[in-house]
Design a protein around this nucleic acid. Sequence first.
DNA 1: CCTACCGATCGGTAGG
DNA 2: CCTACCGATCGGTAGG
Lengths: 200, 200
Amino acid sequence: MSEEISTKGERTRHAILDAAYRLFIEQGYHATSMRRIADGAGLALGGIYNHFPSKEDIYTALLLERHPYHKILPVLQSADGKTTEEYIRNAANALINELGGHPEILNFALIEIVEFEARHTSMLFANIFPQILPLTRRIADTQNNLRSIPLPVILRAFLGMFFSYYITDILIASVMPAEMRRNALDHFVDIFLHGIIKPE
Amino acid sequence: MSEEISTKGERTRHAILDAAYRLFIEQGYHATSMRRIADGAGLALGGIYNHFPSKEDIYTALLLERHPYHKILPVLQSADGKTTEEYIRNAANALINELGGHPEILNFALIEIVEFEARHTSMLFANIFPQILPLTRRIADTQNNLRSIPLPVILRAFLGMFFSYYITDILIASVMPAEMRRNALDHFVDIFLHGIIKPE
DNA sequence: CCTACCGATCGGTAGG
DNA sequence: CCTACCGATCGGTAGG
């Protein structure tokens, strides 16, 4: 992400991706026009086509370079914690710090479902796959007394818990009854932990 | 849903909504044109405007009349079960039966996030709100030994668990490692149950 | 409810 | 990388 941006071409490409990323997250793919992307990147419409052959190519480039898993998986990989409980709580906090006040970045995953019928996921998954095994190993390495649930399912459930927290938050955010929000994420994490750890 | 459809006007209106519903779920809102909706409903483009003033009005009508919560909440309300565990397992099974092989109906909730920045949710929530309290009461009525988690949060977590199961399923469906899929929903339900019920 | 049309905007390109 | 343009399609409407 923070590599040196050397050539001018690379800088322009970067500006196009930045603008498209912001607009896609804000209004979705089909509602975003190439003209607005060009505006956002500070060039004329035709200029974009020196860097990307089509609108969908901008999208797939973003899918490969900035899908939320790029932020999420490294955080999970590097979270501390000897016991499973420690690890999960740390990972959850780290994720909150990372995604922070910007849950919209998860929108990028939703666009793929809503506007593309998940057509690019196999491509995307080929990209993610190598990171799955180390991550389950990271979880397996915690000192744990886990219920007998396959580790990949535990990983999936953890990611799902996070996702569902954000989605329910966005969907009913300001109108949600206060009792539904208070400490909701803490409760979600507690439910998850009690769900995967054997009681003494 | 299965009310008598009497007048011709009502039947046409219904056909328009049906066609739009199918197309929106398949390709999203902005990728769906009024012409294709008209085709799907079996009339000419202009004919739609005898029933709806604009494309967005078709969408909001669907939001109020066919949002997935219309299927989900009644199922939760009427599920059997004396103990909490019985109730949750029955509710989960009933939901699976209801949504069955059609997880795409959840797409409708995602469109609102991705393509409308959740702009209509307060309207929608006003609609849903009266059904929340009875539902938390239904949960409270089960013979339970629950951990101290507010009931609305439990409800939110249950809905979220379901949602996250479907989303992770869609997102990485055919490419997901087999170990991530095997009995995944059962595991999700188990995690949830152990998460909310005190051990003996 | 259809036909025939409107202005606007879309993704993309040629040519320099 | 911009200017000026292309054909296609968009949401919506007038008039009958």
